[in-house]
Design a protein around this nucleic acid. Structure first.
Lengths: 339, 339
DNA sequence: ATATGCTTCGAAAACGTTTGCGTGTTGAAA
DNA sequence: TTTCAACACGCAAACGTTTTCGAAGCATAT
């Protein structure tokens, strides 16, 4: 088990100075052709690779970015990571993944832990708890230290930074309009509680579409699900007590659950009930019937976020505090759950 | 935008030496109560946090481990990351995630890039291409440098290191036996090509179960799918051309595809055809009918792998080269796709 | 008055790099 | 022979820590 070889060891072995070795390996013209070749050969033989930590310390940058997400097992977040990773790698950056598990405390701990030189910048999507508490001091602190932050998907207006989002409101509007155009009258909404930013926006889009078509908004058709509760019975009640034409669900789980319960209640999808979901994940694709859905391109979001972060990192002239918000377009993917 | 404060700055500000500051912050008794308090107060005021990179350089450890997986969007791998992350965090480690995208080259690049001091150890599952090429030099090299590696799921006997696996052979055997016990005679297998280690083992388990019950192995009932091909038609042919009783698929995608095609062919699942999958992911749960499956506990695997790695990292007396292979138990989850 | 010991602090090395600058050696021009 | 580039290389600082060791100051014991 040979340890990693360092400049110092090479220098000692070849009886030259450390700087000579360093310069030789960088092909500096300061060093004679002869010694350069000798040193390079030796270095290659011993498989010398510069120590990244030492470089990080010297350069005051780590070439590592951190992405903080609420949950990795959500397909959407996994695709975002995938996009981040790709762009980061292309630019020579590594990706540290942190999970907040929807917990405010874990989010804070992670950020504080890493803001001490371990990484160059953050990409993050807020945990539910953070959104609920509206406490963003940890993020402000990091930004004030001069570390760039890019937020995506679950963002907040209370923080000034670069952001990558979809137009949740518009996407929901379009999905609802799509159902209205089919001639459906009783369109239910299965959404989250309002403190989840994207849930709220999607709810607004739904309402806007109804109003836009002079349809009245029936609150009994809007089901706001709190994460912890047993939402299956709530959805079942919704389907049972209303003679629905269509359902718009703000995520895959709600959509597929609605489908399964409809089947249980002998409501035929899509013949008697059309269903549209949100997030084009693996469930929508493999459900029976497969689910029409608003597709958010997670890879694109992640890629864009990484690009924005890296550009900011590599812009030497820091003081252009012109933050921008990038909107990734969505798309309605029609599958079998809508007529 | 105030930059991070350093020991040196505090020292200068308070007109003491750097070492005095450092010792004070560690509550060293060498320093008088007075100065200690003064320095601590000042440090707290300026929110001093030691620079992690400097610490890493000094201590020659980064408190970061890297997990290399083929694909993050596979639910199983996402759960493994989740398990790794949890245990790592509990022990004060960060997790760097690298994706090989099933590519040998990306795997090599990632490892070489990070083996230079950036991380303390690897947790990895081999890419398909690596398994096919049987070229493990990059892993050997890393291990020879004294950096611990823990492999999980897709492992190889050609490398000596700690491993975390499930007993793929046994699990497949049990799943097949389960089908045999139901009285099924014509049991097909949908599997991968043999160079994927887990696919091969599962195939062996299937065959073993048949032989164990004096049933003959009909090669025409074994479908070995090469990743790239359009496997849907292959599965459709399998279902069409044989009057099957049951299907054992070595992953979720194959299983759910078989279900969807069976429906298309008007074969009722489970009444006319029972199906068992592998990997208890989100698809199996939300498919219609939901899929009976062999559950590998990804969180447990990840947690165990992280534990093994960290224990090795923290065992100072390195030279106990007693590598172990941990087997995580699997479980057959019965759902609607089997009678 | 000298020796001893304790308290309190600072200097410096070390981790592994990069790089500006100084210096010694050579060869050729004057 | 003197002068002066050009060449080839080494020194040392810097990044931010931790830690060993030595030293200064002072009080106590001899």
């Amino acid at each position: 088990m040979k340890r990693k070889v360092t400049l110092k060891q090479i220098a000692k072995e070849l009886d030259v100075s450390i700087s000579t070795v360093s310069k030789s390996l960088k092909n500096s013209l300061e060093i004679s052709e002869d010694t350069r070749q000798k040193i390079q050969a030796f270095a290659k033989l011993y498989n010398y690779k510069p120590n990244n930590i030492a470089l990080s310390l010297k350069n005051r940058k780590t070439k590592t970015i951190c992405i903080i997400i609420p949950e990795i097992i959500h397909h959407f977040f996994a695709t975002v990571i995938s996009g981040v990773e790709q762009v980061a790698n292309e630019n020579g950056y590594n990706v540290l993944v942190c999970l907040s598990d929807e917990s405010f405390d874990k989010e804070v701990i992670n950020m504080e832990m890493l803001a001490n030189g371990s990484i160059d910048g953050f990409i993050m999507s807020l945990s539910k708890e953070t959104q609920q508490k509206k406490d963003f001091h940890h993020i402000v602190e990091v930004i004030n230290q001069g570390m760039p932050v890019v937020m995506f998907d679950r963002v907040t207006n209370d923080i000034l930074c670069d952001k990558v989002i979809i137009d949740d409101n518009l996407a929901a509007f379009n999905a609802t309009q799509f159902l209205i155009d089919k001639g459906f009258k009783k369109i239910a909404l299965i959404t989250t509680v309002d403190y989840v930013s994207v849930g709220k926006l999607r709810t607004q889009g739904y309402i806007k579409a109804l109003k836009n078509n002079d349809m009245n908004v029936d609150e009994s058709l809007i089901l706001r699900i709190e994460d912890t509760e047993n939402f299956e019975t709530l959805i079942e009640d919704l389907l049972t007590n209303n003679d629905l034409d269509a359902v718009f669900a703000v995520n895959e789980i709600f959509a597929v659950t609605a489908i399964k319960l409809a089947r249980k209640l002998n409501i035929k999808v899509p013949e008697e009930l059309s269903i549209i979901g949100f997030t084009d994940g693996i469930i929508s694709k493999y459900s029976t019937p497969s689910i029409s859905t608003v597709s958010q391109n997670g890879i694109k979001m992640g890629g864009k976020a990484a690009k924005m972060l890296i550009e900011r990192l590599e812009a030497e002239d820091e003081e252009d505090e012109q933050y921008s918000t990038e909107v990734i377009e969505t798309e309605l993917v029609e599958r079998e759950s809508t007529i």
